[in-house]
Amino acid sequence: MPTLAHYLLVSGLLFSLGLAGVLLRRNILIIFMGLELMLNAANLSLVAFSRFNLLPNGLPNYNAQVLVFFIITVAAAEVAVGLAIIVALFRAKQTTHVEDLNTLKF
């Protein structure tokens, strides 16, 4: 049977891959996908904690699953707004490459 440590390590690996995507890739859409991977890694830890720390009545701790539900909702709203911003950016600058977007650079 998998232990909580297994789930936390897999979640950590998923988070690292998302972080690597944000740090290594220069396409703003792929950076956004890396953010989604990191949010999902956090969800995996929360669901694992909910299953491994049962309530006194012997059922999973649903507070964590409700938090995951809220995270999924906020992530969906975030994706919609972020992609609208990317489209507006593409209309203005004709690029999705972050190194071409240096207007605010000092």
Binding site: P2, L4, L8, L9, G12, L54, N57
Partner: peptide
């Protein structure tokens, strides 16, 4: 993460049984 997980024995139990 590996350091924390390895040094915390409470994380190495298998899943507790559900009551129902």
């Amino acid at each position: 993460i590996t350091q924390v997980v390895a040094g915390w024995p409470a994380l190495h139990h298998t899943k507790p049984e559900l009551s129902d």
